[in-house]
């Protein structure tokens, strides 16, 4: 179970919901009123609707479909159909996560963030597999998160952000053209 970067810390805004992926899992990433960032599977434990279509109310995340509310720790605190009753035994699918070096990290297993910090580049989505991109890049300056089998998101650090961004964009064009 690998640990992956799933977002830039400063892009997880209060009141917002960020969508992400990690391997085959779709994610919803949000910052609660406490200031902590949460990484959950983007799937409601009620009927599997996309939680990222809901809203971040600070103290809780609300699924629009049937109005279930999830506290920052993932537990169900409000079910409208049951008069607002909580269900502490039911929880969103919470992943282990941490914020370090300006990045949000998550893992479906044990979390190992390592030391990777620096001025973050603009994250770039590639329409080719993580392995193909990894073969081309310096692992000390980039981290690659698979988005399904045929795509990935590339996170990087580089003091010369614009030059590095141009290099990555050119690489993406080349790899995607090669099919």
């Amino acid at each position: 179970m690998s640990t992956y970067i799933v977002a830039l810390d400063r892009e997880v805004l209060p009141e917002g919901l960020v969508r992400g992926r990690m391997d085959t899992a779709e994610l919803v990433i949000w910052r609660g009123a406490s200031g902590s960032v949460h990484v959950w599977e983007d799937r409601c434990p009620h009927r599997s609707s996309r939680l990222s279509a809901g809203r971040n109310m600070g103290a809780y995340l609300e699924d629009p479909y049937h109005g279930w509310r999830f506290a920052e720790d993932g537990t169900v605190i409000h079910v409208p159909a049951e008069g607002g009753k909580g269900h502490p035994e039911i929880s969103a699918h919470v992943l282990a996560s941490a914020v370090t070096g300006g990045f949000v990290w998550a893992s479906a297993g044990v979390l190992e963030t390592g030391d990777f910090a620096g001025p973050p580049l603009r994250p770039l989505h590639f329409g080719v597999s993580a392995n193909r991109v990894a073969a081309e890049l310096d692992p000390t300056k980039t981290r690659i998160t698979p988005w399904g089998a045929a795509a990935c998101m590339v996170y990087g650090i580089d003091p010369d952000a614009m030059a590095a961004h141009r290099m990555l964009t050119a690489l993406r064009r080349r790899l995607e053209a090669a099919g």
Binding site: A7, E11, L13, G16, V18, R19, G20, R21, E26, P123, H125, W147, A151, M153
Partner: peptide, 13 residues
Amino acid sequence: DLAPYAAIQRWTD
């Protein structure tokens, strides 16, 4: 799929 475009999502928000 709009998930890859986080800046667009912040703008639509």
